[in-house]
Design a protein around this nucleic acid. Sequence first.
DNA 1: CCGAAAACTGTAAGCGCTTACATCGGAATA
DNA 2: TATTCCGATGTAAGCGCTTACAGTTTTCGG
Lengths: 341, 341
Amino acid sequence: MTIRSVPTLDDVAKRAAVSTATVSRCLNSPEQVSEATRNRVNEAVNALGYTPNFGARVMAAKRTNTIGAIIPTMENAIFARGLQAFQDELRTRGYTLLVASSSYKSDVEEEQVRALISRGADGLLLIGHDRSATIMNYLAARNVPALVAWAHDPGAVLPSIGFDNFEAMCALARQVMSLGHQRIGLISAATETNDRARARVLAVRHVMQEAGISPDNLHIIETEYGIETGATAFQSLIDAGHDPSVVFCGNDVLAVGAMKQAQKMGINVPSDISITGFDDIEIARVVVPELCTVHVPHRKMGARAAGILVDMVEGRPFPHTTQLDATLEIRGSLSSASAVR
Amino acid sequence: MTIRSVPTLDDVAKRAAVSTATVSRCLNSPEQVSEATRNRVNEAVNALGYTPNFGARVMAAKRTNTIGAIIPTMENAIFARGLQAFQDELRTRGYTLLVASSSYKSDVEEEQVRALISRGADGLLLIGHDRSATIMNYLAARNVPALVAWAHDPGAVLPSIGFDNFEAMCALARQVMSLGHQRIGLISAATETNDRARARVLAVRHVMQEAGISPDNLHIIETEYGIETGATAFQSLIDAGHDPSVVFCGNDVLAVGAMKQAQKMGINVPSDISITGFDDIEIARVVVPELCTVHVPHRKMGARAAGILVDMVEGRPFPHTTQLDATLEIRGSLSSASAVR
DNA sequence: CCGAAAACTGTAAGCGCTTACATCGGAATA
DNA sequence: TATTCCGATGTAAGCGCTTACAGTTTTCGG
């Protein structure tokens, strides 16, 4: 068996009896080539199974038509969903998506940023505004367009698209407080490196103050993302002897874990305790009672993000911040506090 | 502000007053360079904020330390989960992961295969054995190592890692049949382009024959992946007047949709009807009653796949097929047929 | 049927990096 | 001291592709 290496532009050119320039044009701007030649070239391309060498193309051209995205984890449905929409939209605009995940670690994120940029990403999608100065400097130095999603902060350096986590959580909290809840539990994702989680916690604090409820009535547990961790957190919250009438959860997954655990502990939701989530992923409607949560338009955000980022990359004007609406989904897991015990 | 472009090897060389070759060696095999020079070069690299141009490096060197993965969709938790493990393992071995999704479309998959390979992927992870001849030929022609995951077929051309979908579903079906079920519903993902779905359907057929149940007692509906579509499919199954005592579902998501719909229609699970899923994703334990399903070790598969693919890429020996065990998870949504009505 | 414009196609110069090969001081050996 | 070696460094040839520019062929109005 002959070891024949990967076909190059040159091979195609030879087979079609044209110059490499013509083959290149055939691939990049077919309208410049006569139909006869084009057919001949295409035939050769197919016969040889030719695919352009990306590296070479990048070097010679400059644009890669590639967008990179760095998300905390693929295992979180909201990112998966938003990203799928992002990719679909990107595809229709002729861009390819490269995904990497950071596991919520700043140093990994930095590494991934470098990897994607050195691979020629024309633009980057990042999650949230929390980011080391190193990364910000690097981004600035390389002058690569970057868009932050799942966050909304008109004051931030990087442009962003998202919703106002603080306001959304405030709206939910106000609804909850208006139901007479006074003793409050809160299961949150780590706030240290996650501005979204932080904003949600602040919102609860804020609304409590508005309602004249002492901060002493708030008990917070931070934990990792997951159903199990949500369950454990709920357990500790109860075991600690606080007796919340409502438990806010930083997201639906934690909330579902909490609900399961409540059920296991013989605590009825919502008659004994109310539980709320955030995100409105599918699981929220699957549990019984259905989970009261905040609906976030993840797909829409992904699609819009794609549009904006492409505009940035192609040098068109774009909005520095784009705010989408998150809406309250009042469902069965929330009831008034008066009904408690 | 001066527009200064991205620094190149040349800039670094100039600043350190050495040749480009020395800088390159400094970066790739530091031990070949004297310490004094090395320090000077490193200083220059840092001062300039230099990052090698990936494209150029690939062209000159040949290896990219990049692995590509093409999955049907990121929105399916099983792929997200497996892929996250895949990436984590890849990282520890010094590889970067590039992900693309095909939306279960063969032509899109082909496009993505080309995109990833032209971007220099040293190896490819693919899902399932169903694949157009075009892609197979292309892969063969380019001689790029490719590993198929979520499937197990010793006879297939491409090496694979996964579990035996047919056997796993047979095991579940035997368990179900042993409970006396005779009238059977089946909600499946599209079998046309999905060998895993096909194997599961075949398994049910096979076990029915084993048990001497007429194929007429089997009613199949194919539908897309999703909770909603699962619900709709369940509805049609019932509306069609078949009166199944058990409904097998191609995966947990469809099963959960079916359960929800049953509940909405006033059909009790499992006393009126049993429902089973496949995958054992988290949602399976969240629903009430808990979903009877087949547990698939997605994370383990992802991690193992990474190891095998790296071995393939680096020219070490590797197993042509690796089989993992899928295990039955008998849970509340399955009961014996005698209990029906 | 002529000349100019239009439509194609070819030539060749890089893009930034790696690496085989050449060069060049010394250190080691005789 | 002359010869040999060897480590450190420089030189320069590509890697495969795009594209400005130049050359060639058609097309067409007059």
